[in-house]
Nucleic acid binder design. Structure first.
Lengths: 139, 139
DNA sequence: TTGCGTATTCTATTTATGTCGAATATCCTC
DNA sequence: GAGGATATTCGACATAAATAGAATACGCAA
């Protein structure tokens, strides 16, 4: 039988779309090394974050509950893998900023970036390139 | 006697640099109408957020503690005004995203935006314009 | 089969945010 | 100077995030 975690009514609990700070750190490792264990993640992050194993594990368990990670059990081992792509996560993150700080308007945000975050010459030419390509794609 | 809230040692608590969701909503109003009262903010936001006056007030008081807002007292009135500029807030917000999702690399973020958030033809030409101008400024 | 060494589960603490109601203070008008 | 309309202060409660120790389970090797 369908063992639904939360409630009956087909109503799916709104799962968070965005990652917290700690979750980002963890996801990055998972994306790179999946499938991997909590231990691996903890070790990989050791130099950056002084997190105890249990901290990482607890967080990852919660992320699994939220739908960000999937757990595969092998013997007494839990292998985690991502259930959201890096692209989706990035998109969500950017959208949040876009909404919050720029009322959802993309161009003003780009403009802000260009004007306030010094572009190097290379950056600029690279950008020009990208814009070119993007426009050429749809005439 | 000096009734210091926190601690003795001139050690200033690291004040947060970033705004939360609710704080963004409030700041936007303040930036537009400052100086203004909590009541004004509450009313202005009424159609968007069903917040009780005290919710807004409490949040704004906390924002003042954090250094985001300044309070000027006139009679029994409190006038709030921003202590961080919109530009700074935007910058902080973008930097956070930049760090989190793109390891601090600007160009990849721009690239992502260009490639994943459909640019209209106008957007593109506008962008080209901006990039042009930005490069011309520093040869 | 007895342990050793990991891995897992469970629970707990702290801090921040979101959210408000109730009690209190203050001002202006009559 | 009394009353009522506003504002302010305070404390409270819920949830989520960050963090981690303790207790427990499990698999493998001697």
């Amino acid at each position: 039988m369908t063992k639904s975690k939360k409630a009956g009514k087909g109503r799916r609990a709104k799962l968070p779309e965005e990652l917290t700070e700690a979750e980002w750190a963890i996801m990055k490792v998972v994306w790179e090394q999946e499938p991997c264990t909590a231990g691996t993640v903890q070790e990989t992050l050791a130099d950056t974050r002084a997190w105890a194993y249990s901290t990482v594990k607890t967080t990852m368990d919660r992320m699994a509950e939220k739908g960000f990670l999937a757990i595969e059990k092998i013997r007494n081992l839990q292998l985690f893998r991502a259930r959201i792509s890096e692209v989706d996560a990035k998109r969500a993150e950017l959208r949040k900023t876009l909404k919050r700080a720029f009322d959802g308007a993309l161009t003003p945000m780009m403009q802000f970036l260009i004007e306030h975050e010094g572009l190097s010459a290379e950056d600029a030419s690279h950008l020009r390139e990208l814009v070119e390509r993007a426009t050429r794609k749809k005439p």
